[in-house]
Simulated scan of single mutants.
Amino acid sequence: MDLKIEYVHGDATRPQGTGRKIIAHVCNDVGGWGAGFVLALSQRWPEPEASYRRWYRERATSGFALGQVRLVEVEDDLWVANIVGQHGIRTRAGGGTAPVRYEAIGTALDALGARAAVLGASVHMPRIGCGLAGGHWDSVEPLVTRHLTRRGIPTAVYDRA
């Protein structure tokens, strides 16, 4: 069942609708948590940050790497998906490559789509990979379509009102 991405004006930390929900966002691969959308998550729930930091700290044995995703339950029927889809934290001065890693985001979204299907959950997100990661939505949107909506996973993308 092919669905379309629903674009919503609102706050992705307060996903709309009923049923089980997953809030997806992109994290970096260097253990940094302190700017961008993660701040809004941390204001609502301590668990996503604590899980991410522990996952990173134990990276030698935890499977923490680009392209991985970890779901953290924050309320009944609500999870946050920490997606490792950003290499480093800043674009280098004078141009350089943006930290976003589209292939890693695609790999993680594929795994997230499988988990969402098992849970019977919808997925909610800001325009992942397009803030501090320096990505472009015209490159991320096809990944969201391929790995979520084409699999029948209801997906909402939130833009701040």
Rank of each mutant, 00 (worst) to 15 (best):
R59I: 05
P15R: 02
Y52M: 02
S122G: 14
R70Q: 11
A40Y: 10
R101W: 11
I22Y: 15
D159W: 00
I23C: 01
G106P: 02
W45H: 05
A117H: 13
D76I: 14
M125Q: 12
R115H: 12
L112D: 00
V100R: 00
R127K: 05
G63S: 02
S139W: 02
G34R: 03
I153A: 06
V100G: 07
V144I: 15
V80T: 10
V100D: 01
I89D: 01
R101Q: 06
G32W: 08
V118P: 05
R115Y: 02
A35K: 11
L41R: 06
A81C: 08
L132D: 04
V74H: 07
Y102F: 11
A12D: 03
R70G: 06
L66K: 06
K4R: 02
R54D: 03
I105M: 14
W79F: 15
A121D: 13
S42L: 04
A133Q: 00
E58H: 15
V74P: 06
L39Y: 11
I5T: 14
G94S: 03
T145C: 11
V123G: 12
G19S: 02
W33T: 00
W79S: 12
F64V: 00
R101M: 07
A156S: 07
V140P: 03
P126C: 02
S139I: 14
E47L: 12
D11P: 07
P126V: 06
T155K: 09
R146Y: 06
K21A: 12
A104S: 07
T91A: 05
L3V: 14
E49I: 04
P99D: 02
L109H: 03
M1L: 05
R146P: 07
H87M: 05
G19P: 07
L109Y: 15
A104Y: 01
H147F: 15
W33A: 05
L119P: 12
A12G: 01
V84G: 11
A111D: 15
D77V: 10
D29C: 08
H124K: 05
G152A: 04
V157A: 04
A156V: 06
A156F: 08
R44K: 15
H147S: 03
W55C: 03
R54W: 13
L109F: 07
V123T: 00
G129L: 08
R70C: 12
V74C: 08
E6G: 12
A50H: 08
G96D: 06
Y52T: 10
A133R: 00
I22R: 13
S62Q: 04
E75Q: 13
W79R: 07
R101G: 09
D110T: 03
Y52I: 05
V100S: 07
H87W: 13
N28I: 10
P99L: 11
L78G: 09
N28P: 13
T149K: 00
L132G: 13
A108E: 15
E75W: 13
I83G: 07
W45F: 10
R53I: 09
F64D: 10
G106A: 07
D138Q: 09
R90K: 11
V72E: 09
A111I: 13
S42E: 02
T149E: 08
M1P: 09
R115I: 05
V84T: 05
H9E: 06
L41K: 13
M1W: 14
